[in-house]
């Protein structure tokens, strides 16, 4: 039969409403002024409609970010849902932009909208992809860095869903440590 998208066909609701943010680096403007809310969605269908109409991460200019966060949480450390939290960080080699970045970012998005972290999904605030010349990064942000059971569960699921080799180690960094670091390295609070 022919697929009908007419009246009476209900969309599949997500557990959360999500907001997609875009950051474009302009050194002449304040960091906050470079951050733009693109749109919000709360169904499977609207997620794909959005995903199908925006640039792939690998096509963004260096210095740009996408951030997908639960509605009501801004993608910055200062937000009350983020400030005691941290992030699982996956750093990619330069050559992985073409081979892996889009697949890994989509997998990250599917983890979020599908609520892949079971009873710990409520701890998830959002995810960020940073497109950078020196190497792209993908991170999942959680709300409480001291919640070890939740953080480590989320990290294990995230690593598994990305299909990373068991030999690869990813680290979780508290935003408080990242914000106060004196050099470019932030200590890992947990690793998986």
């Amino acid at each position: 039969g022919k697929l009908s998208l007419g009246e009476g066909l209900e969309k599949h609701p997500l557990e959360n409403r999500w907001a997609l943010w875009f950051f474009k680096n302009d050194r002449n403007r304040a960091w906050r002024d470079n951050l733009h809310l693109l749109t919000k969605f709360d169904t499977v269908e609207d997620f794909w409609a959005l995903y199908s109409h925006i640039q792939l991460a690998s096509k963004l200019s260096s210095g740009c970010d996408y951030a997908l966060f639960k509605d009501g949480i801004e993608p910055m450390w200062e937000d009350c849902r983020n400030k005691h939290g941290g992030r699982w960080l996956v750093s990619l080699a330069k050559q992985q932009r073409q081979s892996n970045l889009d697949r890994l970012w989509l997998e990250t998005l599917l983890c979020l909208v599908g609520e892949a972290f079971e009873e710990y999904s409520e701890e998830v605030c959002g995810a960020v992809v940073n497109v950078r010349t020196k190497g792209d990064k993908i991170a999942i942000w959680t709300s409480e860095a001291e919640n070890q059971p939740a953080v480590t569960f989320i990290g294990r699921v995230f690593k598994d869903r990305l299909g990373l080799s068991p030999k690869v180690v990813i680290g979780y960094q508290a935003h408080a440590d990242t914000a106060t670091k004196s050099n470019s390295f932030t200590k890992n609070k947990f690793v998986v």
């Binding site: 599949h12 557990e15 269908e45 997620f47 199908s52 609520e115 999904s121």
Partner: peptide, 20 residues
């Protein structure tokens, strides 16, 4: 009940969108 969707279910909708 929490609304959870596995990756295969979600990806199935991508292909529907791609074919429209």
């Amino acid at each position: 009940e929490k609304k959870r969707y596995d990756r295969e279910f979600l990806l199935g909708f991508q292909f529907i969108f791609a074919s429209l």
